[in-house]
């Protein structure tokens, strides 16, 4: 008869859950590999393709995919594969920069609001309400109409539009933690307020930000491509994925491949990022629970 209640349950010490969770999932492994490839394309496109993405060759225009041109060529005879590879630099980096700006500014605003409370919180919260009362993409459009199209302006516009998302989560999290059992307990130890904040509130309040950023990165990349598609981002002949699709729309009847590969690149990148983000979130939540 096993009647021990108390020490019968002994969990494995310091389980390496993140590692096992990642390794046991094929989707996670494939996504990681694909993103590794995208990262290579972003930083060293020369390693992936030797073709020049900007080199036009009228003789070779609108060739279907072949061993010479894996993804075919576009209406100006440029190699679509090399354009997609070089496009990673723009499409991915625009998304990453925008989300980084949003995460930094948003976390800061959220923390200030959550910790200061009172009138400062009220002011920041109302401001966030107003900013988010404009739909993301439209807000970005309005900002661009002030600044004009371009890569940097696109990053700034998208970054500003995503600030409220981060600020809200961090603020709410700060509130929850400030009310939690362990902060209350820590108060009874006589810790000073700043010790309490730095030691117990801050790490938990921002713990989720990188995960949120990863999950939000996918939709930001899509939005960036959408705005570029509308002509608000990098201007031709820069091989940004969204801008490439805008050009391709006119040649769809005769050359489908121009309009397929950049879209595949966006979709696969976003799927891979989402899978990793979801996995990370699950692992994180698993570690929080009893």
């Amino acid at each position: 008869m096993s009647a021990s209640f108390d020490q019968s349950y002994v969990a494995p010490r310091r389980p390496r859950r993140i590692f096992t969770a990642f390794a046991s999932r094929p989707g996670v492994v494939l996504s990681s590999l694909f993103l590794l490839f995208v990262a290579t394309a972003t930083f060293w496109p020369q390693l992936v393709t030797t073709d020049n993405p900007l080199l036009a060759d009228p003789i070779k225009s609108q060739l279907p995919p072949s061993p010479d041109h894996w993804f075919g060529t576009d209406h100006l005879g440029r190699d679509v594969f090399s354009r997609v590879v070089y496009g990673a630099r723009y499409s991915v980096l625009i998304g990453v920069s925008a989300i980084a700006i949003a995460a930094l500014v948003g976390s800061f605003l959220g923390l200030v609001a959550g910790l200061a409370r009172g009138i400062i919180d009220e002011f920041i919260s109302r401001f966030l309400d107003v900013v988010s009362s404009f739909p993301d993409l439209l807000l970005a459009l309005v900002l661009i109409s002030f600044t004009g199209p371009g890569t940097v302006n696109l990053i700034l516009a998208l970054g500003v539009a995503s600030v409220p998302r981060f600020a809200r989560v961090v603020r709410a999290q700060t509130f929850v933690i400030a009310k939690s059992g362990y902060v209350e307990q820590a108060k009874t130890f006589g810790l000073a307020r700043h010790t309490l904040i730095i030691r117990h509130i801050l790490p938990h309040a921002i713990a989720q930000v990188p995960i949120l950023a990863t999950i939000g990165l996918g939709s930001t990349i899509i939005q960036a491509a959408g705005l570029s598609f509308l002509g608000m981002g990098p201007q031709p002949p820069i091989p940004e994925w969204g801008a490439m699709l805008a050009e391709a729309r006119n040649y769809l009847r005769v050359a489908w491949w121009i309009g397929v590969w950049p879209g595949v690149a966006i979709t696969l990148t976003v799927i891979a990022i989402s899978i990793l983000g979801k996995r990370w979130q699950l692992a994180f939540e698993g570690r929080r629970q009893a």
């Binding site: 996918g218 899509i222 969204g242 699709l245 309009g259 966006i266 976003v270 799927i271 989402s274």
Partner: peptide
Amino acid sequence: ELTLISTPTFWLGILLLYVFSF
């Protein structure tokens, strides 16, 4: 759903156009 969410609406539109219209 993961695929649909990760697909930009404008690209989905282009694909639909190619398949169903052209």
